[in-house]
Lab assay of single mutants.
Amino acid sequence: HNLTITQGKLFFHYNPKLCLSEIHKMEEVSGTKGRQERNDIALKTNGDQASCENELLKFSYIRTSFDKILLRWEPYWPPDFRDLLGFMLFYKEAPYQNVTEFDGQDACGSNSWTVVDIDPPLRSNDPKSQNHPGWLMRGLKPWTQYAIFVKTLVTFSDERRTYGAKSDIIYVQTDATNPSVPLDPISVSNSSSQIILKWKPPSDPNGNITHYLVFWERQAEDSELFELDYCLKGLKLPSRTWSPPFESEDSQKHNQSEYEDSAGECCSCPKTDSQILKELEESSFRKTFEDYLHNVVFVPRKTSSGTGAEDPRPSRKRRSLGDVGNVTVAVPTVAAFPNTSSTSVPTSPEEHRPFEKVVNKESLVISGLRHFTGYRIELQACNQDTPEERCSVAAYVSARTMPEAKADDIVGPVTHEIFENNVVHLMWQEPKEPNGLIVLYEVSYRRYGDEELHLCVSRKHFALERGCRLRGLSPGNYSVRIRATSLAGNGSWTEPTYFYVTDYLDVPSNIA
């Protein structure tokens, strides 16, 4: 807008934040220059609390790290170098490059900038070799853009010569660093050979998330399962459950009422301010606690030095998902009996873990797994792929695949051998790939016309006998059925096997 004052003059007093240069501009645009008398524009009460600059400061050096910015700028000295009290560095987070010096300023003089007072450097006698002032900004957020400017702080001049310097606002972004852990990993099994893994992005990506790394490792069953005799009275049979499938998407929606109208769909109840505040506090606490764990609990591995020492970490090797089922080394339970199943799973520490690289999504279907087997899954978020990966501390989750139908069934015939004193040795093959492992066998036998009897055969007993022995049988026709019990439950009964026990007292003698 054009402003013209045809008559009258300007009068400025007691404006401590208004620089004289701005008042002189007002004289020019209003056409009143030359009308004012000496005392109409006070030299001592206008701009006496402001830094009124008329020179431009330029930054000469900028260096960044993930949490620091090192700045240096060209030296500046007023005509009387004693008038320079120091520099004021202003900075704040700036997602967009549209910041002005006066953003967030209120009537009390406060604003949204963080201000650092910096002492002037030592003055050199040689004007050509003056030290460049600077400042190291610490405690910054990774991968965050900051708006920065600097200006001088000078003393009051009796001659009211307006001098000083100020830089333009520059924008500097800190470097990326390792992201925080992925949030809320959930693993479920939808079949006997697959596990579905879902997660949420890290709360602090500290860069642009480029991919996720998912490692999985087959877990050995508890050692007590191999040692305890679950045929003993009072000892509860062990059981394991597989990871249940995901709930429906509708039930997972946030901010939804727990109660549904019987007449149909209901609208979600909005969260109160107290609920939102509580969630923010919980989120802040979780982030602080995660940072504490990362800094205190997890110790970084030592990389190899120039002395030739090897990095103890196993090298990563990509495998196809079809090879995942046989990740671990199978060892027989008892070496003397080769027909026992290889369900003991000690994992070799030198073995390469299978892994998958996930790009542009937060889910993965891990296939080719062994049925009813526990897996430990390790999830890392990465925001750099080359020249070397920059990934987060791992988040861990466990899951067990679903049982395989008929995996616990005894394959092959049940054979028998009759000894003296009416002892019958029953023999059968253990299931080759049971659900988890076989903890015991149930032997059901009966003599024709009598009630059915049951015998429990422990895992250890089966390994020693290759089956079991029935003792003290009365003469007669017998039928026997056997079924295995694994961590997933009972298998199917075998087809009945028949044998006849004679009275050993009636056996004919070869003595003449």
Rank of each mutant, 00 (worst) to 15 (best):
P205W: 06
N206A: 15
N208E: 14
I209D: 05
T210H: 15
T210Y: 05
T210Q: 02
V214D: 00
V214R: 00
V214A: 06
W216K: 14
W216F: 10
A220V: 11
L225E: 04
D229P: 08
L235D: 04
K236D: 02
P238I: 05
P244Q: 14
P245H: 11
P245N: 08
S248T: 13
Q256V: 10
S257L: 12
Y259P: 10
D261T: 12
S262Q: 08
E265H: 12
C266W: 11
K271P: 04
Q275C: 07
I276F: 13
S283M: 04
S283D: 11
S283K: 01
Y292S: 03
L293Q: 03
L293G: 03
L293R: 02
H294E: 01
V296A: 09
V297W: 02
V299T: 04
R301F: 11
T303G: 13
P312S: 13
R313T: 14
S315G: 11
R316I: 15
K317Y: 08
R318M: 11
P332S: 11
T333S: 11
V334M: 13
A336C: 10
A336P: 13
T340N: 12
S342N: 11
S342H: 11
S342M: 08
S342L: 07
T343P: 12
S344G: 11
E350Q: 09
R353A: 02
P354L: 12
K357S: 09
K361V: 05
S363I: 12
G368L: 10
G368H: 07
T373K: 03
Q380G: 15
R390M: 04
S392D: 00
S392Y: 00
S392P: 01
A399F: 02
R400F: 04
E404A: 04
E404I: 10
K406V: 12
G412W: 06
G412S: 15
P413I: 15
P413K: 09
N422R: 09
V424T: 02
L426R: 01
E433R: 15
N435R: 01
N435E: 01
L437R: 04
I438R: 01
I438A: 12
Y441I: 01
V443A: 13
V443K: 01
Y445T: 06
R446L: 10
G449P: 12
D450L: 05
E452R: 08
H454G: 15
L455N: 13
K460F: 06
A463H: 05
L464K: 06
R466V: 08
R469N: 04
S474F: 14
N477M: 07
Y478S: 01
Y478Q: 03
S479K: 07
A484N: 00
W493V: 06
V501P: 02
V501E: 01
T502W: 06
T502F: 09
D503F: 11
D503E: 07
